[in-house]
Design a protein around this nucleic acid. Structure first.
Lengths: 212, 212
DNA sequence: GCCAAACGATACAGATCGGTATATTTAAGC
DNA sequence: GCTTAAATATACCGATCTGTATCGTTTGGC
């Protein structure tokens, strides 16, 4: 293995073991054995186990959100449909044989102090996912994109939690049905995207002056 | 402390520490120090740490479901309203300063193997809670009580998961609003509660053979 | 091709883990 | 009140934990 790949390989191995056994139950000795790397090497890349956990969460955060974006954008073109497509992405994740629950929820569950860096990293991931939902809800012209995003987020988290227990994709399909009927009744802004308040005003002015 | 109280005191202390730090992070030495009990005494009551965890989960399972029943039944008399009152109970639980997430989800998150006795104990609790929702949905004469119970359950789990991160009661209030509008649109059996299927089939057979 | 940095292997440190052994004291039930 | 079971206190066990130290080997960059 080339030296430049070692860090990434360590993070991948760590993520796999954290998902399999959790954080406290994953020991350094097991990790280096699975990664096929000397202990000295591990500690050259990461000062402490906590640093390793934080780096692994950061990597997975970026990976998973990028994967969701790509999946959703290729599956649907309309923002409204994309909001629903996030559930298809979640179902695919949950139906993976290796699924044992959301690793960020597990991280927060094993590091419960709100000031714990691991907890904060998990919280940050959840905020970024919520921000993506809000971005989609905004683009779909929902009158209250924040509230819509919160609802989608709650359905995601509920489905993930239940799927962690049942180990099936059914809770996710159920949550998508709930989201479908929920979104169908929500008010949407009729025409132009409400955009940023300043932008909307400006755009309105431009079209008004240009055509009238 | 009277000897007959020691076992219960150990379980209460264990549950407090499991909620504070999690399962792996709660050591036996800390537990006996907090409980003010000798290690020999602990191991006279519980053969292993896993036995202690299982007994603690069983105790909390019975306690929490009994508390929910009492809360819900005194808060509302109609089954329909009781379904919504479960969210008020959840909000009270979540707003507790000591709330750090559902201890059953944490137990499952730290014992991910589906055959692990701890995982199975957590799963059993979730099934019993779901059964209570179904009982209420049935009594409220919903046409599809199982589906209603699943939906309520999903909203509960979603709210609990998000509240674990935000440490506020807001996700629970949001989930109750979602439940309210969801239930309002669900079909309910008008008059008598739908009789058991066997009874209906038997009745049908009798009339068929009698007339054909 | 040289040199420095990184790697691997191993041994070890000190703490903590779950659990046991022993010996003494306490208290509950007959 | 006596007996017996259960409590306490303490020392200990082997395993495992995170992290370090040592030292020989490999490799990437100039």
């Amino acid at each position: 293995m080339r030296r430049s790949e070692i860090r990434g390989h360590l993070l991948d191995t760590a993520l796999r073991l954290f998902n399999l056994h959790g954080y406290h139950a994953t020991g350094i000795d097991l990790l280096i054995a699975e990664a096929g790397v000397a202990k000295t090497t591990l500690y050259r890349h990461f000062e402490t186990k906590e640093d390793l956990i934080l780096a692994a969460l950061e990597r997975r955060d970026e990976e998973s959100r990028a994967e969701m974006r790509i999946f959703v954008e290729q599956r649907a073109s309309e923002p409204y449909e994309r909001l629903l497509a996030t559930f298809d992405f979640l179902e695919a994740s949950v139906r993976d044989k290796q699924f044992r629950g959301c690793i960020f929820m597990s991280a927060a569950g094993e590091h419960k102090e709100a000031v714990d860096p691991v907890f904060r990293a998990a919280l940050m991931h959840k905020r970024l996912v919520l921000a993506y939902f809000e971005e989609l809800a905004h683009a779909a012209r929902f009158a209250e994109p924040k509230r819509i995003a919160d609802a989608i987020n709650l359905l995601h988290e509920g489905a993930t939690a239940i799927a962690q227990m049942t180990r099936t994709g059914e809770p996710v399909r159920q949550s998508k049905r709930m989201a479908t009927s929920l979104l169908a009744e929500e008010a949407r802004v009729p025409n132009e995207p409400p955009a940023r308040r300043e932008g909307a005003e400006q755009q309105a002015k431009v079209s008004d002056t240009g055509r009238a």
